[in-house]
Structure formats: structure tokens, C-alpha cells
Design a protein around this nucleic acid. Structure first.
Lengths: 244, 244
DNA sequence: CGTCGACTTGACTCGGCTCAATGCGAGTGG
DNA sequence: CCACTCGCATTGAGCCGAGTCAAGTCGACG
């Protein structure tokens, strides 16, 4: 806690805004913040690894964390990308089961962490946190169910469109002529998010680019036409290989 | 509460064993049971429908409930089948969001229900319930993630094998020469569980039957060889259409 | 300037979906 | 007790979306 200097107020505001601490008064928030350890995670570093027993909860203050799950056969599924204000590790920590995914920084990041013992003590002291946790975990379960539904009924093109739409709205930065996903995003990442191969993602993106829906470069995607991307996601529109 | 007669002790034991009420003392359990309304749900009846605003939580005491999610385009995904001792509706009720799936009785069933207002009052009074709820919802999120992984990386044959394996171990009744899934289970149901079509399920099951792994009839499946079914689930073994 | 990782593109293959026809078992009502 | 019927299940033929593999090209960075 000592030596944080100017960063303290910033951390305070993150804690204040986090859904997990919603409804708590200023004094409680102070106590909670006092129990946190700030950490830096370099690009490529892991916050926790799939299979590790749960040791801490992390509130992201800066940077971007990729949550990924790898199957026994080595194939990877991207669960999501988390940014400032979001919490990583909560399903594992609150359930006291091993992390079911790996959290890795895709750029230099900063987080606040709470040891699992502290989390449990805090929950005991502030029961409101438990009900907040149910909502957070529940929302995650809902999101999974929706993805499951989409994966089993929709085409790859639709799923890629949905993934992009979500990224652009959650982590979009306005640039001239569109909205850019605000972190490095490879074709491989998009493939892992949408349950496709990087080849199919590449082809699809190029077709869309020719039609002006997106503009893309090396590890970078700009959404140019939200409406048409939404239509692609709904399956109303298809651009993926029509005969000449 | 009056007029339950002999059923009371039975209900009590269900409440006692439910994960949601774990760690509560007898007096608390009595209070909780007193707040419950027992209900009968006829075969085909709905306990709640996808999209309804959450009104109650249900603990199943008898019968079998199918949880299904339908996509806008009408295709259905089976989330799972719940039996005695399991709880339906908890993700929606604790989050206070509309039910994201429909719960329908596939045979005449009995449940204990708690109105959402009562649930919230009980949680307020017994904070332990909130932490139990986090675990239940978290386990559901985990299960979804695992299915998502399987759906995006494994073959249809593997997924059907997994679905059957789970059903047989969760709701299996020993019969001579194997374990039978203890409720009516159509090919369509298996398809919705594994993300396949009923045609593929039918074909797959027939191949397995010829090899003695399962035995199946109208809305009925008996697992004869657990080991080989497990191998099929892991992808170590394949029976699905080898050339003569 | 060389190397390496990200990306593109083409050719080929095939698992599993679609559609359509038919079979079969279990209730139901005469 | 039989015939009807309805919903579940089987089976075949055909096709196509998307995965796989193999060569590339391009751009960044040391």
C-alpha cells in the first residue's frame, strides 16, 4: 500500500465502479481497497493459469487481458477480452475450484488483486458482495449459454460478425471512418472467439473489406458499417461466397 | 402448508439436501420449508417460459424437467434435464433477469417453489444462501464453458457420446445388461443436447448398437459398455462410418 | 537486410446437414 | 380386438460449408 503515490485515487475510483462492490459505502470501499495489492503484468505474462488452484481475484485497472481455455487436444477457445474495470478470476475464486481458463496480458497491464482468503473474509463482512457476485457469475453463465446457442445454430460468418460487434462496442475507439477495436487482435484471436479457423476468418474479413463493412490490417480491425455488420450477425445478409 | 400430510417429511429432506441450503441449521431449514409452495406439474406443462420475468425458484422433488433454450430462428438447444433434488430457475431469479430458458416437465412432476420476493428475503436473512448460490451458478457457468469447448473442437460422435455418458451417470437406472437413462429420451432430445440433428443421432446410435455399445428403442437408451462409450467420447475410438 | 510471425490465397476433401420417403410402435376409438 | 393414426425413428441420396494442407506474400522489428 505504501508508495502508491498518485495512483491511489485512481484505484479507488476503479473499486468504486466495479460491479462486485456496488452498493457499499465509502468506508467499506476504503477497507476493501486497503486489502488489495496492485500488480503489473507485462505483455505476455499470465495473471493465472488454467488448472491452478484459485489464489486471487483481479480487478483490471489498465491494459487488456485475454481469457483463454485450452482443450486437452491443444485447441484453444477464447472466452473473452477484459479491460479496465472488469474482474478476472471470479468464477473460480468464489467457487473455490481451479481456474478453468488462463488469463494472459496481451499488452502491459495493471491490476488490483485480492488473495482468496481476503475475498472470503470480505464477503463474510460485506454480504452485499455475495449477491453482487451471484449477478456477475450469472451474467457470465448467460453469456456462455448465448454463445452455445449461436455456435450450434449459426454460420461461421454470423459468429465472426457477432464477435466483432461485441469487441467493437465493448472496446471500441472511434477513428475516422469507423470504430477500431482498441487492442491488438489477430485473425487467430477472432477465430478462437468465434469457433472458426484463422483461414476462414481471413477470407471472411477480406470479403467484408471489399464491401466496405470493415477495414483490416495486421492485428487491427476497424468496423466501418455497424448496421451491415449487425445484419451479417443476424443472418439477414450474407457476403460469404456468392457465385459470379 | 396445511394438508400436506405424509409428504412433509419428504419435502424436508429434499430441502435439507439441496446445495442451496447447505450449512443451514434445522430451524432455518424449517423456516425455509414453511415459505415454500408445493406444486404439481403435469407432463408437458411449463414451470416457467423463456423470456418471462423471474417469478420463482423451483426445487424438484419428483419427476423430470427439461431445460431448453430456443433461438430466434426456432432451433432448440437443450440445456439439461433436472431430477429430484435439483434446482431450476436459479440463474434468472438471483440475477433478477428474465428466464433465459424454458422449463418443461417431460413426465408428471412435483416441485417446491419459492416466490422471488421470498427468495430475496431469505437470502437477506441467511447470507450463507448467497454464497451457496454463487457456487451453484458458477458450476453452471463452468459446465457451459466445457460444452462450448467441446462443441467447437469435437466431432458430433464425441458429443453424442458425452451427452449419453452424462445422462447415464446422472439419471441412470441399472437394468440387466446395462444402465438405462431413467426417463423418456427421444433422438431429438439427444440432438438438442449434443448440437447435432436427429438424423445424425439416429445413425450414430444404430452403428453403436451394432457394436454392442448401446441398445436403444423408442425414446429409450441403454448403455451397455461404459468403457467404450467413454473412449468414443474421448475420440480414442470411432465407429462412425468406416469403409467396408 | 534478414528473419520471423502474421496474413493471404488456392485446391481439395469430407463430416454432417438437408430433404424426402418409408417403417414402425403405441395409444385410441369404434 | 382390430384398424387408424400420429409421432418417433430409420435410411438413402445429394450437397455444401468450412476445415485442412501447402505455398506463397507482406510488414515489422532487430
Amino acid at each position: 500500500m505504501a508508495g502508491l503515490g498518485l495512483r491511489m485515487p485512481t484505484n479507488h475510483s476503479f473499486v468504486q465502479r466495479a460491479k462486485l462492490f456496488e452498493g457499499l459505502d465509502a468506508a467499506s470501499l476504503d477497507t476493501i481497497l486497503a486489502a488489495a495489492t496492485p500488480r503489473r503484468v507485462p505483455k505476455g505474462g499470465a495473471l493465472f493459469e488454467q488448472g491452478d488452484k484459485p489464489c486471487w481475484l483481479a480487478l483490471i485497472t489498465e491494459g487488456r487481458i485475454k481469457i483463454g481455455h485450452v482443450a486437452p487436444d491443444g485447441r484453444t477457445l477464447a472466452v473473452g477480452f477484459l479491460g479496465p474495470g472488469e474482474i478476472a478470476g471470479c468464477t473460480a475464486v468464489f467457487q473455490r475450484v481451479p481456474y478453468l481458463a488462463t488469463a494472459r496480458a496481451i499488452e502491459d497491464s495493471g491490476v488490483l488483486t485480492w488473495w482468496i482468503e481476503e475475498v472470503e473474509a470480505l464477503v463474510e463482512r460485506y454480504p452485499k458482495m455475495a449477491t453482487n457476485a451471484v449477478r456477475i457469475v450469472g451474467a457470465r453463465a448467460d453469456a456462455m449459454l448465448r454463445r452455445l446457442q449461436q455456435l450450434s445454430t449459426e454460420s461461421v460468418e454470423q459468429r465472426i460478425a457477432r464477435a466483432l460487434l461485441r469487441l467493437a462496442s465493448e472496446a471500441g475507439r472511434p477513428v475516422k471512418g469507423g470504430v477500431q477495436v482498441d487492442f491488438v487482435l489477430s485473425r487467430q484471436d477472432l477465430a478462437e472467439l468465434s469457433g472458426a479457423t484463422l483461414y476462414t476468418v481471413s477470407r471472411t474479413l477480406n470479403v467484408w473489406q471489399k464491401d466496405g463493412v470493415v477495414e483490416c490490417g495486421r492485428q487491427r480491425v476497424v468496423v466501418r458499417d455497424f448496421d451491415r455488420l449487425a445484419q451479417l450477425a443476424e443472418g439477414v445478409l450474407t457476403l460469404a461466397a456468392q457465385p459470379p
